[in-house]
Design a protein around this nucleic acid. Structure first.
Lengths: 254, 254
DNA sequence: CCAAAAGTGTTTCCTTTACACCCATGC
DNA sequence: GCATGGGTGTAAAGGAAACACTTTTGG
């Protein structure tokens, strides 16, 4: 593409001075669910600017790696999570000239889903990586560095929307889960309380979403109740018909 | 973000050698509709590699402009279209290390909608910019340079999906249009033949999508028929409920 | 026994779909 | 008149929402 610009063409060879100095980074918005609450992985900055403030994990792309590979690598390097995410996908790029006060940085935002965080990532060698409730950021109680609040908001909307039309909700669960577990994923991401009965039908009738596990219905709840049967993710990636989130209550409180 | 990497922190100052040499470009997928057919604006390359082949318009971002500004500028510079697009939005970034044989280029893909192309962009000072039927590219009859076929395919899927849930279809029409015009937009983008009656109701009952023009119902068709009333785009940006595209016929021909 | 969670049935309502039908124009 | 496209009516089918009800466990 360089020769799309009005600058004279050099015939295939390019001098670095022909194009402006830009750095490209990836930033990762990694979601997981703990205790039926949606969490995002943040790190605490150890250097200025925004020293001490929360930020998304991320970093430079390397010369020979694709964007998604860079995201996977940075996620592992910065948070000590070496488990492969159940899902990793880009959702947008951010290139405001002033978004980083030090230099021109264009960043590509990725969002990821991880289930069953092995080490709860509370510190240890994971340098200050922590799972923070998304509500803490959405409510403004936690401020993020750079334009990371915008990036997180976009990732959230992407994730909420994707749960409607794809089977990605299952990526929040382990390899085996109950329909209740899956419903709690939707409730956590959407801030809803879906009807248990209707959800059961929708999800079990949707072909390829989840498949039954042939097993004695083991899992018991905490406080009694009929034991639920177990399911695993099915082969489908998209949901038709979709599971649509309830329209948000947009009437002002009386 | 630079100090997210394991490299030692330099305290706020950055040497260009600290990060790999990358160029950032934007590529634009500009859609319009001519004679009820979906077209995309392509340029013919005048330099190697891919000399003479079709490609998407695009180019380097400038030091002080946002990504969307760069897309607008490149669209104007490369195609002579100085009209503001009715819509311009990014849909993905592409950073495969080998996507440009000359150097590392990360490109941000934008898609745009333009209505009523003033000069049909057939040549003149617009250097070899042409409107090409999307079907020519989808069918493989036209090959695109670099990974532009992938980029175009992603833009197409984005556009097709956005027509379901947003009011963007109106951006393909002029300031005044008939319901039929709007339906032909959907038919062109989706390769469908929507039921005229049902479409009429859906679209006129959807609040904020289109609004009636108080005017003598002027527009006549070519071959007679009751004259249609005119409408303008309404204030809404999203459609609820959405206009869902029919499920694609996925049965093999007998 | 009761509480609690899993799962099914049922009723009501609304949307979608197909298609018949009328309306208003050019020829 | 006839053809053509604009717009409305209508009936059948399907899905969603609310909620009663049964099942199976823990205590």
């Amino acid at each position: 593409m360089p020769d799309h610009t009005p600058t004279p063409d050099t015939g295939g060879d390019y001098n670095p001075r022909d194009y402006p100095a830009v750095a490209v980074t990836v930033d990762i918005v990694m979601f997981t669910i703990v205790d039926a609450e949606l969490k995002v992985l943040l790190i605490q900055r150890g250097t200025p600017p925004f020293l001490g403030q929360w930020a998304l994990p991320g970093g430079f792309i390397h010369p020979d790696e694709d964007l998604a590979d860079a995201a996977r690598r940075e996620l592992a390097e910065e948070t000590g999570i070496h488990q492969d995410p159940g899902h990793l996908e880009q959702f947008g790029s951010y290139g405001d000239p002033d978004r980083d006060p030090r230099m021109r940085v264009v960043t590509v935002g990725f969002w990821a889903i991880v289930s069953d965080l092995p080490t709860p990532a509370g510190g240890s060698d994971a340098r200050n990586a922590e799972l923070v409730a998304v509500s803490e950021v959405e409510s403004g109680r936690i401020r993020l560095a750079f334009d990371h609040a915008t990036i997180l908001a976009d990732a959230l909307e992407t994730a909420r929307s994707k749960l409607e039309s794809t089977t990605l909700a299952a990526a929040f669960c382990g390899p085996e889960f109950t329909v209740s577990d899956l419903r709690k994923v939707y409730d956590a991401v959407w801030n809803t309380e879906l009807d248990a009965g209707n959800f059961q039908r929708k999800v079990t009738k949707s072909k390829g979403f989840i498949e039954p596990v042939e097993m004695p219905p083991a899992r018991h709840g905490d406080k009694g109740g009929r034991p639920a049967s177990l399911w695993t993710p099915g082969p489908a990636e998209t949901l038709s018909p979709p599971i649509s989130r309830p329209i948000e209550d947009q009437s002002p409180p009386s």
